[in-house]
Nucleic acid binder design. Structure first.
Lengths: 198, 198, 198, 198
DNA sequence: TATGAATGAGCATTCATTCAT
DNA sequence: CATGAATGAATGCTCATTCAT
């Protein structure tokens, strides 16, 4: 009996299933919005049974949270890499690298970002004012200020101000859809960011 | 007899009922979120029957839309008034007046604003990138540029950038809850806005 | 004051209002079915207020009843007239006059009659005139005709004719409730069916 | 262990659930009419949850359709069997077999048939079997019989039979829409009516 | 007579979540 | 790990009818 099934991985590793589910959820959320997407549709999209969903997530809200966390983490990684490539003392370089890497990450995931940040059930205004991205940006601004590059009265405030500005311009309909538009967008961002700190 | 009834409409003027309903809806949306608020709760809050709701709004989404429109319009009125009090050629004055009036309006309506802008069913990214507020701001920036006050490559872009920045800082938890915080917030906004245009 | 209104018939005579209402109801019932027609639509169609409806009819069902009664009465009048024109002893003439006058009346009011007799939503008149049972019967009649058993000008017509006749007698209240009644019913059916084909 | 469960499906076969639901629906439709029967009552009658209903039918109308299809199919089967037992050349035998089998099927399912064909609220079967038109026709037939024109065993029966036949042919879609069709219709009616009385 | 705002019971349908297998 | 039938609370919306004026 056991041998009959031996050759066929009865199931998929949990990691993989979880990934499938998140992928299907992301697609559907993007396509029809969070509220209009049912758990059943997600499981169908991931080719698993309805019950399987609850083996990997405790609720629908849980997937959203997972999606959000993954998005932010990956964005942060991308930013860290770009910023790390700047010269230690080049604060303007670091700041524009931050802003541009953030913008790129958004453009690449465009609408998803909006969804996981806004469509969350208990929106509370925290979404856009306190997250690890803003913390990271605030830290950069504070360091640059201490380094004498800029004179910012309140780096934390500027971080929120700037982050939300970025968030907004990047979410314009059609923003960066083509190469030229994208280039202009990044240029405009750089320009405005630099104006802001000096 | 006739005089006794003259001033008192047969039941309640439609306007008033509509207002009651919107007020109740606003309170509930603020208190428990749009999704968790039922139409029945709204009618109970307005002390009318369930059916009465549909005498004034075609659906739940319709109230949200009405709330949004009212909010934006009143905000715009407040902004226009403040901006109008500046000297004709004082572009920086106008811009900071715009930003501060907008911030004040938000602070006064605080979380409501978030709700009506974000909690809408088919949010689409348009919410924060194209509305009459941003159009108004873009116009101001364009005029100031033509007037030689600033040199903005793309006033429309800056308008979105700035509007979203404002939107974000104003929605920090506890922002401007007390007088001191509020004053600081407005000062920080002024400072950053001015940096942005030069 | 009174003189101001004197010359203007404040309202319409009840008869006329009632007629307007019935007319509007008939149109709507015909157009969208009884169930899908609301009392409000009827009053709008008759250009009166919602409340006025209940001044002339006790309920929605009451209009249907009134419509039905009027239809039947007018049909009966038409029949009486036609039949009355036949010679006293010409029974076949009277009978065919009856049948034809009845048919004409129906044709003239066609779908209305259907409605008031069987207040069905939109099942269209197809229910009893085209279904696989009738097709089956038509086929049998056609075959028998080809086989020389009967000389039917239009087997399909006869199928509908016969099917509906059967349908009717079988649906008499209490038809075939007891063994004896049932036996008689079947005998009567057989008798009439055979008359019909020859 | 396995054998213990072998014959008993995990829950209940879809077929069986569907059957339970249809049975409950039929009972209720018969008892209180289609419109007055709620989906909840149906599920209670079938001892399943409300949601289970929508696992097997897409809507309330869907059950009616299923009931109708089942009724017609079973009736047709019964007819085919009876007709098949007649001698090949015995057309009258076949025809009366058809009519009687059809009548029996109706009698056995009586009011259900009425319901599924004309999902009317509570019109009761009286509509087409006892109204002043039929009374009038019956009177005519009785008189003609007394007058020696025809020999009708039961004029009242023939009246119902004939009235329903007329009703049916006249309600064919498009019946008598143009002058030619109308003339043929009236001719066919006359022909069949006369056959019926002799 | 006439109005039309107000009522509120009523109902179909959805869907996240559970659980027996 | 996996299944998917079953659940049932929850909710938006309709509409016949009433009634204060």
């Amino acid at each position: 009996m056991a041998s009959r099934m031996a050759g066929r991985p009865r199931t998929k590793p949990a990691e993989e299933r979880r990934y499938d589910l998140m992928l299907a959820a992301e697609r559907l959320f993007l396509h029809k919005g969070v509220d209009l997407t049912t758990v059943e549709e997600i499981t169908q999209g991931a080719a698993v049974s309805k019950g399987a969903f609850y083996l990997h997530f405790s609720s629908k809200a849980d997937v959203i949270e997972a999606l959000r966390a993954r998005f932010v983490q990956s964005l942060l990684n991308g930013i860290a890499e770009e910023v790390g490539q700047q010269d230690a003392g080049d604060w303007n370089g670091k700041l524009t690298a931050w802003a541009k890497a953030c913008a790129k990450g958004y453009l690449d995931a465009a609408r998803l970002h909006n969804l996981v940040f806004a469509a969350a059930p208990p929106p509370s205004r925290k979404g856009l004012t306190s997250n690890i991205l803003i913390d990271d940006l605030a830290e950069l601004l504070a360091e640059g200020s201490r380094g004498g590059a800029w004179s910012l009265a309140d780096p934390a405030f500027t971080a929120i101000f700037l982050f939300n500005a970025l968030h907004g311009v990047v979410n314009q309909d059609g923003a960066g859809d083509d190469g030229a538009g994208r280039a202009k967008l990044l240029r405009d961002i750089e320009d405005n960011v630099l104006r802001l700190v000096r």
